[in-house]
Write a protein that binds this DNA or RNA. Structure first.
Lengths: 131, 131
DNA sequence: AATTTTATTGTTATATTATTACATAGTTAC
DNA sequence: GTAACTATGTAATAATATAACAATAAAATT
């Protein structure tokens, strides 16, 4: 297992910063638009930073929405094991950090007895406000 | 809850047919290429069929791969509650049908006591062959 | 049967999301 | 200091998905 990188590069900091300031997931091109004043002009600059940030667990990708959200788990140890609840009305997204759930899922065995320590789970429904 | 539709339209049949013949998930434009000999020439024709087939549970979308796979569960009752294992090496995808897992997940309550009967879970790892 | 409504189709164009490729510069390890 | 690696800048393009509109066809209502 590769050691987690301890510092962030200039572009990675800029991209992480903008994502952390958003309560909700951000799309790549929205991030791009927001960081243009900081000198990041082209998609690859953003996508490279996103790739790295996902890899080290600072952010997560919400696959069903093609959007990126900052990890709020103190230690970001669950970069590979993520769970979210998504409101289908207002698109509010919350990361779920339940050790019970993560234990259950990392211990889950399929029919061939195989286990997985990497997974992504997205729950859909209506949030409190929208219900 | 809306009644499930009992028949498929011409284009829906064509698209479903090609997906069912594939052991692995298919991408939309690969489907498009394959159905051009049957007269479906433009992306919207394929995407509309895909949307409908997903809605009625005949196929599922593998969100992390932007690809579509036929549902192999007899009754297709779990259109809203899907789980897959994905091999990160050969990209082999298998639908997981475990009533234990689906019960666990549909009974899962988040910190606010909220339950979700709709979810998508994608497990990642190496399949038998690739391990 | 005629009307109305709903679902489906065909088509063009375009929007959105993401990557390739290549040149350059900075950092780290030896 | 040089080699190896990591990050950056830039242009071009690939891949994924939707909007908008006109036309048909099928189903439901009268």
């Amino acid at each position: 297992m590769a050691q987690k990188q301890e510092y962030l590069s200039k572009n990675q900091k800029i991209v992480l910063d903008i994502i952390e300031k958003s309560a909700q997931p951000m799309k790549a091109y929205s991030i791009l638009f927001n960081v243009q004043k900081k000198g990041l002009k082209a998609p690859p600059q953003v996508y490279r930073a996103l790739d790295k940030l996902v890899e080290i667990g600072k952010i997560h990708k919400i696959e069903s929405r093609n959007a990126f959200i900052a990890c709020r788990n103190s230690a970001c140890t669950i970069a590979n094991a993520t769970a979210f609840s998504i409101c289908e009305s207002c698109e509010d997204v919350k990361e779920i950090s339940s050790s019970k759930l993560s234990k259950y899922l990392s211990n889950f065995q399929d029919k061939e007895g195989m286990k997985y320590n990497k997974y992504n789970l997205e729950f859909f429904g209506l949030c409190k406000k929208c219900k």
